[in-house]
Design a protein around this nucleic acid. Structure first.
Lengths: 203, 203
DNA sequence: GAAATTTTATGCGAAATGGTACAAATATTC
DNA sequence: GAATATTTGTACCATTTCGCATAAAATTTC
């Protein structure tokens, strides 16, 4: 049928790719300091084109946050493979987290959500909602794996999976903040290892 | 002598109070979204007066960060009173942290450093430096108390004080992020308690 | 081929922003 | 009391920012 053909001039860009490029700008500068000119230059799209396709700056930022959230959930799901022991799951989560947090053309940039959405959360309710929902979803994914671990005897019988999941997330939040503040890879890796050790005392 | 008397028109404000008022604005809006007009209105000072007394916007922000850092170190020192057991020290740190993170006229605003300086850290090297130095100082204060605790038998003989201090900080960083994201007091208090339990397994 | 539709490109406008110039106000010093 | 020094207040400036108007370009539909 003609459902793929649409009247009008065809787009010259892939929406997903543009959101990724915008994310790079927001990740470096934060939402408020990232100007439309910055975004225009990074995406190679003029401002009316950005507005036409993505709405205003906040909407583009929200799209970028949601994209990062989805990718993070994918990474989490992979690291939490139930075929692996829990210690390995946690080690993989932190390893992958550090890969993300320590990459960056100019400097280690930490977690996109924690580094940029926190600053905007009070003045922009929708940003706050995405931040809160994302953090809770990450907690939830880890908590499910913890429940399985408890049932398998990988955790002490009196362990509370939801609480341990939150502590495991706490280590990740701390890694995010520290990476952005400039801590070394060695320091961050040591924190990750000790996080695994303290959350999974059984070997 | 005349050392207190200075030529020229006297100031109508107290510099420390103004830095505190500016901090409230920056805490809500972040650095980039806080305008000179916002700061002027909050401090009741005109822009030339702000410039004359504090330098440009970034310098005022740095003053606000340093003020918060000093106050935080004071709060930490008090909570880490060696006369108390380590568990009590940690419980007090998190209690005081939550008091700070959950206050705010409009909403819980988390930690001023973590909520606002992270967004600016990549583009403003001086902000990044203050953030990193502050986090390391907080770690250091807790680590000293951990060393004393180890010597006293409050921690297992094989415990590493510096590592435990960083995990204790991780809980604090997580509380900060979650408070700003809108988590409830009950959830945050539960995380704090479980943080104390996991870091101080001896009773 | 003309009409309709969507996208891109150029230019513009109103408002906001960070910062400054200058005069008036307020104090000390001589 | 005049000169000097510092602060406050008003007005202004150059630039940036976000968003829009309009025309041209590129496609589909009839």
């Amino acid at each position: 049928m003609k459902s793929e053909k649409k009247q009008g001039r065809p787009r010259t860009f892939d929406a997903k790719a543009v959101i990724g490029q915008a994310r790079e700008v927001f990740w470096d500068k934060g939402f408020s300091a990232a100007s439309l000119d910055n975004l225009s230059a990074a995406t190679k799209l003029n401002r009316p084109s950005l507005y036409g396709a993505f709405g205003d700056k906040e909407e583009l930022y929200l799209d970028a946050l949601e994209g990062y959230r989805e990718e993070s959930l994918d990474v989490l799901a992979e690291a939490l493979d139930p075929a692996l022991p829990l210690r390995e799951n946690l080690a993989r989560i932190y390893d992958r987290a550090l890969q993300i947090y320590l990459h960056g053309a100019t400097a280690a940039r930490g977690c996109f959500l924690i580094s940029t959405a926190t600053a905007e959360a009070i003045q922009h309710a929708r940003v706050r909602e995405v931040l809160g929902r994302s953090l809770n979803e990450f907690d939830g994914a880890i908590s499910e794996r913890m429940e399985l671990a408890k049932a398998r005897g990988e955790l002490p019988a009196d362990a509370d999976p939801a609480t341990l999941a939150r502590l495991a997330s706490a280590v990740m939040h701390s890694l995010a903040v520290r990476a952005r503040a400039g801590d070394t890879r060695e320091t961050l890796e040591a924190i990750a290892r000790s996080g695994v050790d303290i959350i999974c005392p059984l070997r």
